[in-house]
Structure formats: C-alpha cells, structure tokens
Design a protein around this nucleic acid. Structure first.
Lengths: 222, 222
DNA sequence: CGGCTCCTTGAGCGCTCTCAAGCCCGGTGG
DNA sequence: CCACCGGGCTTGAGAGCGCTCAAGGAGCCG
C-alpha cells in the first residue's frame, strides 16, 4: 500500500456556479477563489470554460481508501472546466488564491482553443505517466521543479512560488511527503536549487536538473 | 533506477503513408499491419485518422536510457493518428496483426468523433496516472486485466486474447516483467483468472478482481 | 538438435515507504 | 509577555515491496 493521504475533510467546497453568479452581478467575468478551496462543477454547461489568470489549481482523483493522485497542476493561462478535463472524474482544488476568468463564447475561436487545451492536457498526462511509471524519486522531483518553473516563473527567471505543499508534491509525483522533503533538501545541499522559506524556490542549476530529470521533458511545445 | 527495458532495435518500422499507398491502390480504406511493427507518422496530415478494426496498438514513450512507458493500449474501435494522440511525442507499435481503416473525412461528424477520442484518451490517461502513482502491483495487474477484458473480450464474455507480452504489461503498468508474472500466476492460483497458454486469459472472478483493483475503474462511460 | 524468445520461479538487495520524534512558525488566548 | 497549539516540514531508523540477478522451463523454428 502506497501513501494514503489523510482523507480530505476540512477544506471548503465551493460550487463554481456560485462564483459565476457573483461574476454576473458585478458585470465582471472574473472570480477569485480562496486558497484551499475545493471546486465542483454541478450542472455546468460544457461550453463554460475558465482561464486561470493568477494562482494555481490541482486536478486530482481519489481512490476509495483515500489515496490521492494529482493528475495535473494548472498555472496561469491554462484553461479548465467541464469541457476540458472531464471533471466529473476529477476533483479540483485551488492551492492558493486563484483568479479565474469566464471565457464562454467570448470569441468564436473558443472551440479551437478548448481543443488545444485538451490536447495539451493529454500530452502532459502522457509525459506524467512516463514520470510515474519509469522515473526514480530524484528524477521525478527534478522534472517537477522544471515543470513548475515553466508554469510559475517568468520566462527569464528561475524563481517561483511553490504553491504545492510537500504532501501535494507527493500526491502529484506518486511519492510520500518524506521522500519529497528528502530530495528537495538534497538538491538544496547540492546547490541545484535554493529555498527562501519552504515555498519559494529558485533553480540554481537548471541544466543539472534537466540532466537528472531523465532527458528533456517531452512537454514544452504547444 | 526502475526497470530499463532493453532498447528496441530489431522490430520493423513502417511509415504509415506506405500503408496508405497500398490503401489507395486497392481502392480500399483498410490496411493490415504485421505484428510487432513500429509505426511512425512522417508527414501525415492532421486530419488523417485511423480506426482500429481488429488487433491492438500500444502508444509508448522512451526515456534516453531506453526505459519505456506504454501510455495507452488501443483495441478495436479506438481511433489513432496524428490528430488524436500527438504521436510526435509517442511511438506506436502494433502488438499483433492489426487491421486499421482510414477514416479521413468519410463523414462530416469526424471532427466531433476525433474530439471524443481525444477526451477518451485523456480520461484514460488520468485514470492511468492514478494507477501508476498510487496503486500497488497487485492492484495494477487487476486493473489492467479488467481494462483489457473491456477492450478485447466480447460484451458478455470474460475471455480474451492477451496481445501484450509480460514485458509490455510491465512497461504499461510501471512494473518489471517478473513482478507481472508473479502476480498473474498468483491470481491464477487464487482462482481469479485462468490461462489457456500464456496469451489467452479468462476472468474467473471479475468482482474479486474489481475489488482488488482498488475501486471501480474510473474509465468506462464513453 | 541448437538457438531463440518468452515465461516462471527463487534468493537477495535496495529504494522508497512507514513510523516516530522533533523543529519552525504563525495564531490564539491567558 | 509567554504558553500552548496545530500545521507543515525535516530528519532518522527500520521494514517491506518490488527490483535485480540468475537459473531453468516451454514452445517454436530452422
């Protein structure tokens, strides 16, 4: 039996149509989701889609005994909603305060955008399967850091805020939080990364990390 | 270091446009791919899509050192092609003699079908991530058997041909061939399955397998 | 018959998990 | 001000699942 994260209980659960309503009232298409909010999408129309403006959302699945697998981490500019990932199979949780924008039918190119987003998720899911099935713990951590830098650090920068806890990272990478902690600190001791507090990370040796990651990650082209 | 399958070398590699040409010559839309043929899709138009009529195709990724991860197993009626899975990131290999049908623009509903197929692949990929990240070896084998029965056994039947070798199963499930063999034989000793030869399998206790699989698999609805 | 591929089975090891203790830090209340 | 508490993180010690290595069997083909 692999790590069984403690079953979620305390976190707030927010129906996303509630957010929608506030959207409409304020004549705005933008909603703000508080940190650690679980989203669910009750009767959402397939065409209702959100774009993340700032923040971070995790998509996850649960096994009956409480084991959790995070299947993707969504950063700024990623789309999500019922038409994208089939969220009736996934839960979604905002890992920090997250601003989302409703993009329903703003323009007619939306369908194409959604299909692109679905294909991006598929490519990421396939690369993630390779990570989960065939990479060692160290390789997984290195891959994750590179991925997160790509999503949350500015183009030129290698510094970013880590919205995930050690437990989140473990549930994303198929490890335990102890193993995640051990490898992060090992990478820090080896000068590959540095922390400023446990949730700010700077990649000090990106090439070294990419080497460890086990070959260039297959998801980068759009 | 996890299992590094021996690097592939001997298997035939067939450009899929070669198959296409024979298609056109015979005025047929159907091509037959020999067993253990690697496909690659050189200058294929995005809209050229195949439907599997009979047989089995594996999509896989390779790490630089030769480790292989099979990201999906495609059985009859599944679509594939460049517009579906982004095959420039995946290799594809026919695991047995496989008949495919070119479905380019036969009807105008094709786009919708392709999008459905992509979404199915995404759902399967997410369920597979949960398998790889959070399930034990026994749970993975049980899940795989149920999945394969769904794709390759007739609706009512629980008997099917296993087109995958033990190595293929291992590379799909993130295990080694020895572990796969051990659990398959353990399930046989426990009366959950039976073999007729190493490549014909019959599920004797589907409910038991589903229990072991760690909760109903999340991919079944289309 | 040899040679090949695939499969099975055993013995032992090691990577990662499990269990446990303790630290850091912010919040809260005395 | 300090005490207390709780969540998240770090670190160590030991155990176990699945990997590694190895030997041998079964089936097929020339």
């Amino acid at each position: 039996m692999l790590a069984a994260s403690k079953p979620f209980s305390g976190t707030a659960v927010v129906p996303i149509d509630g957010l929608l309503r506030t959207c409409n009232q304020t004549e705005s298409r933008i909603a703000t989701i508080p940190p650690r909010t679980r989203l669910f999408l009750p009767g959402i129309d397939r065409s209702e889609t959100f774009r993340i403006r700032t923040g971070c959302i995790a998509l996850f699945q649960l096994l009956p005994d409480g084991r959790r697998q995070i299947v993707d981490i969504l950063g700024p500019d990623r789309l999500f909603g019922r038409g994208i990932s089939d969220l009736h199979q996934c839960g979604a949780e905002a890992l920090c305060e997250t601003e989302v924008e409703l993009v329903t039918a703003v323009r007619r190119s939306l369908d194409a955008e959604i299909n692109q987003a679905v294909r991006l998720m598929l490519r990421r899911a396939q690369a993630h399967a390779t990570l989960l099935g065939r990479k060692t713990a160290g390789e997984r951590i290195a891959s994750a850091l590179i991925d997160l830098a790509g999503q949350f650090a500015g183009e030129a920068s290698s510094r970013f805020q880590l919205h995930l806890t050690r437990t989140d990272l473990a549930d994303w990478l198929g490890l335990t939080l102890e193993t995640v902690s051990r490898y992060l600190n090992r990478f820090r001791r080896e000068g590959l990364v540095s922390f400023e507090g446990p949730s700010h990370i700077c990649l000090r040796d990106r090439a070294g990390l990419e080497l460890i990651a086990g070959g260039r990650d297959l998801v980068d082209a759009q």
